[in-house]
Design a protein around this nucleic acid. Structure first.
Length: 740
DNA sequence: AGCACGCCGACT
DNA sequence: GTCGGCGTGCTC
């Protein structure tokens, strides 16, 4: 876990005057800032956005501070101009510095995340003009075309629309306006959207919720604090942290709510609007350019009061941040694995510390790291042990697949099939969970055993039969490679010899449809829903009881509320346990517990059936008994004994490139140059489990160190001693959470 | 990230 | 004989 050093919050900004040298950081993968001279008539301060000359072009950057020298006067060029945008706030700049130092990412690459909308720095586009006929019409040459334009221009219209209406070219409209026949008026700016209103009455909270809400409210405005909001599914965590949001708004501060991308659901937004009477600003990867530009500026100018977004929202330039909430804090998608490798939950804690504000981490299944921070007294904990409205937690039962084996090419064990039949007969809904997209994860030749593999990755091609296009195809889930099913086995040329092995959600749905032909069935997976709207529609149909059985991957687990769902069946509870991942047990528990929590949220008690080959496993036992504490205690002890995070530190180095031999050379060289002392241990190199990914060969090294070791300094020294050829890349992953 | 510089294949 | 492919290297 990263900890930001305590530092004073206020600094007197030095001003830079013409002729002074200063450092400008550019959003490019450069290790540090470049020196520039302040131009004539300019006054600049740290944080100012500026345009500077760079080689034969110009680039936007941020004044980072005083010059660090070392560049000849002749090479030092002048700042072109200061951009008309509020300066990047000091806390945001320090976050950029901190994240770069912690992750070993180039400083400029981190700045790029805070400058994610280049067009937002440009001066506002001049307002669009609308044209209206001048009345009375001045004397001018009126052609037939012009007359039609005058007749159409009874109300202000944009030029293109007016031209279309009059059946003329835009040139006619423009010329007529020039001649004085049309009056140009700026189009009225889109009405500023309504602001969330904290004065609205909140929902009635239970005594338990009110206690937690009061505690969180009390932290807003009182400095840095980390609080775990730990509440069972359906306990109303969201409503509790909304009260802290209301308090921050009352203090006229901004709020950032981070959610896993997938959980940015219509249902969450509905709840927010119900509480505050207006939508928050949404920030996610599918935003269009105009929305991004508007959003970035609204944050920078302090107009956006509440921002809800996926991890990248953490780097928005809030000038008045008063509260951060990280919902579903245990979720693995907060870890960014590409480019700048960082964990948004951990960096949110850092940001809160740098801003001097509280951060709330919410989850029904908190990560082990966070729980250990609570035990160590670093984080406070607010616990909501009961479901809101008295709903009962579902009963979790294990189905031992060794005793209740499904028949061949079937995935529903007799007890689960019986339960499904009963649920349908009672007119209730069921959810079948299988965390595998497509029809079958593996296709092999019955004659020679050849397996269909991705040409660019160490991965099987997944058979998709009922995908969007309707046609059958093979797909790699790592690189997106798509291929048709070959007519012959590429190895032995046998005809029609392919056999699908194992189930995906599509195949499971096929079986369910065959067994329960009368049931209304839907499949929910990230690839069966082209966007958040499709997901919302499906959730709505489910809530409307237009679906009897929903078959889904992990996208069903996140933030959806299905009031009439009473049965959850987990097809392969063991799926996440294989592979020796440090967090396999914890993650499997979190995912399945979250899936189980979909059942029985309203008046009906729910039932959860887990199909497993290892019912005696500690994870299965924890799920069946609901005793998470014991599982976490065992996991904590295991990690402590092994010196694993958070009791020790890990850094992964991934060496990759298209030339396997070159990659191997660099990986071996790294190992040879590895730091040798008794505080660190270097393991590897070893081929990565995904030893080929997107056409790049990959080798891994792992540095394991005691918690007190300054791993960044160790790594910097280590990496300084090696100069890999350009085609070979060394990626550093501090605190890795994935070991692929 | 851009953008130029620099060495090897298919065209006017 | 040129146009152009993208590998490599630099930008205060």
């Amino acid at each position: 876990m990263p900890f930001a050093p305590a530092t004073p919050q206020t600094t007197v900004l030095p001003e830079f005057l013409p002729g002074d040298r200063l450092a400008v950081l550019l959003p490019l993968p450069l290790a540090g800032a470049y020196d520039y001279r302040v131009g004539e008539g300019q006054r600049l301060a740290p944080g100012d956005f500026v345009r500077v000359p760079l080689a034969n072009r110009q680039a936007a950057g941020v004044v980072w501070g005083a010059s660090r020298g070392g560049v000849a006067d002749a090479r030092c060029r002048a700042v072109a101009e200061r951009l008309a945008v509020p300066p990047l706030p000091e806390a945001t700049r320090r976050l950029v510095d901190w994240v770069a130092a912690y992750t070993l990412a180039p400083l400029g690459a981190v700045l790029k995340m805070a400058m994610s909308v280049p067009s937002a720095l440009e001066p506002a586009a001049r307002p669009e003009l609308a044209y209206l006929a001048v009345d009375p019409l001045p004397a001018l040459k009126l052609t037939a075309a012009r007359r039609r334009v005058i007749e159409a221009a009874t109300a202000p219209l944009p030029a293109t629309e007016l031209a279309r209406l009059a059946g003329v070219g835009v040139a006619v409209v423009k010329a007529l306006a020039q001649a004085g026949g049309l009056l140009a008026v700026p189009v009225e700016r889109r009405e500023p959207s309504r602001q969330p209103d904290w004065r609205r009455a909140g929902p009635s909270l239970s005594a338990e919720q009110e206690r937690a809400a009061a505690a969180l409210r009390g932290l807003v405005g009182a400095g840095y604090a980390v609080t775990l909001l730990d509440g069972v599914t359906g306990s109303g965590k969201t409503e509790v942290y909304f009260e802290a949001v209301a308090e921050a708004l009352a203090q006229d501060r901004q709020v950032l709510v981070l959610l896993p991308e997938i959980a940015l659901s219509a249902q969450w937004l509905e709840r927010f609007e119900a509480r505050f009477g207006a939508a928050p600003l949404q920030w996610h990867s599918e935003l269009g350019d105009a929305a991004r530009r508007h959003g970035w500026r609204a944050v920078a100018e302090g107009r956006a009061k509440v921002v809800v977004g996926a991890r990248s929202a953490l780097f928005l330039p809030f000038p008045q941040l008063g509260l951060i909430v990280v919902d579903e804090e245990h979720d693995a998608s907060f870890k960014q694995e590409e480019g700048v490798v960082y964990h948004a939950r951990d960096m949110a804690v850092v940001r809160a510390r740098l801003e001097g504000i509280p951060v709330a981490l919410a989850s029904a299944t908190p990560s082990l790291e966070t729980q250990i921070n609570v035990q160590a007294g670093r984080y406070a904990r607010l616990h909501l042990p009961n479901r809101h409205g008295g709903a009962l937690l579902p009963k979790v039962e294990l189905i031992d697949l060794r005793r209740h084996a499904p028949t061949r090419q079937s995935w529903l064990s007799p007890p689960l099939a019986d339960a499904l039949g009963g649920t349908l007969a009672a007119g209730e809904q069921a959810l079948l969970f299988l965390n595998r997209r497509g029809y079958a994860p593996l296709t092999l030749c019955r004659h020679c055993g050849h397996r269909l593999q991705c040409p660019h990755c160490t991965a099987w091609l997944v058979d998709h039969r009922f995908g969007g296009a309707g046609s059958r195809r093979l797909q790699c889930h790592h690189c997106g490679h798509v291929a048709a099913m070959p007519p012959l086995c590429p190895e032995c040329q046998a005809e029609a010899s392919f056999a699908a092995c194992g189930p995906g959600v599509e195949r499971l749905a096929e079986e369910v449809a065959a067994r329960f032909p009368e049931a209304r069935l839907a499949v929910m997976a990230s690839d069966t829903m082209p966007g958040p709207r499709a997901a919302a529609q499906l959730v709505e149909r489910m809530a409307d009881r237009q679906i009897d059985i929903l078959v889904g991957t992990q996208v069903v687990a996140k933030g959806h509320h299905f009031p009439f769902l009473t049965l959850v069946g987990v097809i392969d509870a063991d799926l996440g346990l294989a592979g020796g991942d440090l967090r396999a047990a914890e993650r499997t528990f979190q995912l399945l517990w979250q899936v189980a929590g979909r059942a029985g949220r309203a008046a009906h008690p729910g039932r959860v059936l887990l199909q497993t080959y290892q019912p005696e496993d500690k994870v299965m036992q924890a799920l069946a008994s609901g005793d998470a504490e014991r599982l976490y205690a065992v996991e904590t002890e295991d990690r402590r004994l092994a010196g694993m995070p958070p009791f020790g530190r890990l850094v992964a180095l991934i060496v990759s490139g298209s030339d396997a031999a070159a990659v191997d050379r660099v990986a071996r060289e790294l190992a040879r140059l590895a730091p040798r002392d008794d505080t660190v241990e270097v393991l590897g190199p070893a081929p990565a489990p995904l030893s080929l990914l997107r056409g790049r060969h990959r080798r891994r090294l792992l540095l394991k160190a005691a918690k007190t070791v300054p791993v960044q300094a160790v790594l910097r020294q280590w990496l300084q001693r090696i100069q890999p050829p350009a085609q070979v890349r060394i990626q550093v992953d501090v605190d890795p959470t994935s070991f692929l």
